[in-house]
Design a protein around this nucleic acid. Structure first.
Lengths: 161, 161
DNA sequence: GCAAATTACTTGCATAAACAAGTATTTAAT
DNA sequence: ATTAAATACTTGTTTATGCAAGTAATTTGC
């Protein structure tokens, strides 16, 4: 029975790289004085591009399940990053809009994220990065929940072309 | 201000691939009838190679902090995967050993993990996989906590050479 | 038009991570 | 020898995930 080598296991490496990235990003955001988590960021990215998405749509686009989204939204409401408005045509649906505060965070947070990505990939060539992204995307697409995210993005791109 | 493209962001891709991998692995383990989490697995891998590690050493080798390790150990004790023995020379230290049950899981769990990795990388060439692993390792090494893991592994390899 | 199925969201429960603060034991410094 | 510092571990709090079960609103099929 082969000795399982952790540092040769894709699962372990993805988990470690993910932790490094998320910790560094969270640290950079907090040190810049923003009360925003990395998870809030994924929602803000969606809303900066299109406001008024329902919780279900946000869950689809970020690869989260509905309970996770429900609680994440509650958290962002508490921090006054967003507001929630009941859909006039479908009372089940709650649509999410940005507050002024949420809107204004955009340029600073995008800078922090880009800076963080530069930090953690300073040692990586452009070509290697492209291969890695392409592989990670394929891995993500093997799973139903995360595949939905990329299928949505691909569909959107087709519309724009 | 550029539109932030999520499917081009390494952070998002790592998070999605990680979720795909962990969900698939957890599902495969559970479906095979084992009451073991993916986090238990990382500890078991260490103990299959060397028993009697302290909680601190396990934390170092898996990139977790001590509180996380403390609770993870409590959980594994409850499931009777491991036992905990106070160090005779240092009463602060608690050393972890496998139960018979923990020992016997080895071959089955290693199979499940290897099968899962094959599932999620069926679409990926050997060469692409090598590049990806190498990049992820470099990303992980940019962060203090996860760097320790690889530094430890590298040191161990040097000793064996 | 009404019961049944579906949809959008929420709540409960277990596990897990990050951080801060606590306890107990050991080591170091004088 | 005693106090101070360091070490190993634990507990509390907040945030987050996965899954199951619940509520309320809307659609569907007859």
């Amino acid at each position: 029975m082969s000795n399982y080598q952790l540092d040769d296991s894709l699962g372990f490496l993805v988990a470690m790289a993910g932790r490094a990235l998320m910790n560094q990003l969270q640290r950079n955001i907090t040190e810049s004085g923003y009360d925003v988590t990395t998870e809030h960021w994924t929602i803000l990215v969606q809303l900066w591009e299109q406001e008024g998405l329902s919780q279900y749509e946000l869950a689809q686009r970020t690869g989260k399940d509905q309970p996770s989204m429900s609680r994440l939204i509650q958290n962002m409401l508490k921090r006054e990053l967003i507001v929630r408005v009941a859909d006039t045509k479908d009372a089940r649906c709650k649509r999410i809009y940005l507050t002024e505060h949420g809107k204004h965070l955009r340029s600073q947070l995008v800078s922090i994220v880009e800076e963080t990505l530069d930090q953690v990939t300073s040692d990586v060539s452009e070509e290697e990065l492209l291969v890695t992204k392409s592989v990670l995307k394929r891995v993500a697409k093997t799973h139903s929940v995360t595949r939905t995210v990329f299928d949505q993005l691909d569909r959107k791109k087709e519309l724009h072309e």
